[in-house]
């Protein structure tokens, strides 16, 4: 497995973590009303979207490099 493939695996894990953090933040906000938790949740959701966009860019940029 090349660095390209491993980077994709890493990106998937990062997106899952960002979504989890967003859910965690929203849950904290719902329970406590903390503005910081809400801000954290929104930032995490935005980070997840950014990582997906970056992933598409990455695949385009390294399309000639092997997955092995």
């Amino acid at each position: 497995m090349s660095l390209k493939s491993f980077h994709l695996v890493f990106l998937v894990a990062s997106v899952v973590l960002a979504l989890f953090l967003a859910a965690f933040g929203f849950d904290q906000y719902r329970q406590s009303g903390s503005q910081a938790a809400l801000l954290g949740a929104i930032s995490s959701a935005l980070a997840a979207v950014t990582l997906v966009i970056y992933g598409r860019y990455f695949l385009r940029k390294l399309r000639h490099i092997s997955y092995l």
């Binding site: 660095l3 491993f6 890493f10 973590l17 989890f20 953090l21």
Partner: peptide
Amino acid sequence: EVAGLFWHFVDLVWIFLFPVVYL
């Protein structure tokens, strides 16, 4: 590339470690 694979592994460990111990 080899050093990058190691680096990705180290970062991936943190991706699991962070939610487990913090969240």
